[in-house]
């Protein structure tokens, strides 16, 4: 089952998110992640939706999405050259005795420490999902206390390779 990154430019007004998410839920699709934010044009938001599913059903969802009155443009980035990022905030258990090991991982991944407590640090990490998963994998033995992720955002590249 291929994952699809669907990017939709939509009107920035109340109710639009419900329309979009309703389309997916009405067809029994589980949205893996959904990120919404304003674009360069304050009247529009960009929704980046990551969803897995059967190809024909996804094609149907993409067309349905396009049909919404509030949707200006829909792209499926699966076959388009693009840049994608995910941002994670992770509180990692790191007592003073093991902190340097965690800090080393943070450095290797070019992440940042954004908060420090007595026995834990909060790490901010941006990158592809793969990178974030790799980092999480490595810090999991230390203990992940809490985590928040934005879900993927994506933009097509200027030159499509």
């Amino acid at each position: 089952m291929q994952k699809h990154i669907i990017s939709a430019l939509v009107a920035n007004k109340p109710g639009v998110l419900a329309r979009v998410s309703g389309l997916f839920s009405a067809r029994g699709f589980n949205i893996e992640s959904l990120a919404v934010g304003e674009t360069e044009n304050p009247e529009l938001s960009r929704m980046t939706i990551v969803v897995g599913g059967d190809e024909t059903i996804l094609e149907q969802v993409r067309k349905q999405l396009d049909k919404l009155i509030d949707t200006v443009k829909v792209q499926d980035f699966s076959n388009i050259s693009h840049v994608e990022r995910d941002l994670a905030l992770v509180r990692v258990h790191s007592p003073v005795s093991r902190r340097s090991e965690v800090l080393e991982l943070v450095q290797i991944f070019r992440a940042r420490i954004v908060d420090v407590g007595h026995s834990e640090v909060m790490v901010e990490l941006a990158g592809t999902e793969e990178k974030i998963e790799a980092f999480l994998d490595l810090v999991r033995p230390y203990g992940i206390r809490e985590m928040a992720r934005t879900g993927r955002i994506a933009l097509g590249r200027s030159v499509n390779r």
């Binding site: 094609e59 149907q60 049909k67």
Partner: peptide, 11 residues
């Protein structure tokens, strides 16, 4: 007239 109708139930 509706692209979503095409290919929905039969190919």
């Amino acid at each position: 007239v509706d692209p979503t109708s095409i290919g929905k139930n039969v190919s």
